[in-house]
Design a protein around this nucleic acid. Sequence first.
DNA 1: AAGTGGTCTAGACCACTCA
DNA 2: GAGTGGTCTAGACCACTTT
Lengths: 233, 233
Amino acid sequence: MTDQKPLGFQDIRDEVVNRIQTRVWPQGSLLPTEMELAAEFGVARATVNRALRELAEQGIVTRKRKGGTRVVTTPVKQAKLPITVVRQTIEEMNAEYRYALVSRTLIDCPAWLQAKLNIPEGAQVVHLQCMHHADNRPFQFEERWINVSTVPQVLDEDFLTTGPNEWLLSEVPFSNAEIAFSAVPATGHLQEFLAVPPGTPLFQLERTTWFRSDPVTFVRMTFHQGYQMRTTY
Amino acid sequence: MTDQKPLGFQDIRDEVVNRIQTRVWPQGSLLPTEMELAAEFGVARATVNRALRELAEQGIVTRKRKGGTRVVTTPVKQAKLPITVVRQTIEEMNAEYRYALVSRTLIDCPAWLQAKLNIPEGAQVVHLQCMHHADNRPFQFEERWINVSTVPQVLDEDFLTTGPNEWLLSEVPFSNAEIAFSAVPATGHLQEFLAVPPGTPLFQLERTTWFRSDPVTFVRMTFHQGYQMRTTY
DNA sequence: AAGTGGTCTAGACCACTCA
DNA sequence: GAGTGGTCTAGACCACTTT
């Protein structure tokens, strides 16, 4: 009984990872070709291909036609950061979510936002300020600008009961975005709404969103004192 | 000339995304089966399968045997966050990188770290403090604890010229980790090494790393004032 | 019980890239 | 020019889930 049961692509993948981790195939070395591996494991080349393709996506190996498959020397880890809606985050903590609109105004797009979104002069945007509470304690202050020309429906939405994040997600799903994380001091509005002393370090997330190369929205979300964003790789 | 050239899985994928974005297949709706799509596009089922599998990985659709393929109602975006070495980050800014070891001591594992890494009592760890400079200005302060029992080679490494991050990457590549981002005030060491007034908000990244379920290291990296971490999705 | 996606196979052709 | 991965096909069987 040399072979027990047929191997799947996941078995191949795991075994390759194994050999890389145990330095059977050291960093920088060249792996056998797909055909050789297929012969060794007794599977079709397509199966080996799928296994190695996944490892390439994970950044563990690089693949080149004619060049073969090589173990990456300095693996660039990729943490997957799930971007959820605030409501979900809070409800997953088993806390009670409460949303409150602070202000909603229709304004001419300020110059800095024009530049950031690359939209023409004189465009109009809806400016929103909102608070998100968890168990009645301040959780996140949200300041947002929505491009009226991309999302004209925004003029008919008052955002009194639904947060702009969730509303936009239903109106403009499947957009793409740029995100920036930073630490900022509590000043002005932030200090008041998040109920912290002036200068308190706060975790902040800025995001610019497009739908098919049309700028949709820019949002600045500032979290309560001590908030940690977590992930894995 | 009804069909020009044979379609690839990428064409299928893009066209499906297109139909989802334009609400031909609205959120929550059921897509045609793989066989139906294969017939429509004039390709093999495997090709449709690959296209839809990618969209499922991206979280745009969900797939269930017998249940079919369904457009996700509230897409959970996943930002891919490349975790690079500090040196790279700095060199990509076209700045000059400089590393300096502040302290290196062999100590008994403190209780809080024992709990965090889940290692037995009395274990020993190497405690490191380092500074990373960009163009001779403070960029990042790194405080790290390395588990001696998992990485015994650490006893022979003085870390005078090479940062522990890069060293560990060559000794223990392909590990997995938990990451937490937060905003902290500058105090004590941080304030001095990063040359900022006390209480300045600083961006901090904490990471716990394992290799095959053996705890390797815990690191706390605090960045200079105003640092932003950026990504896309 | 039936229908759907999940996977594998054997073969083929192509595209890239190295020598 | 030759070798490698990239992709596609047609068919098959399996595994899960709903009816």
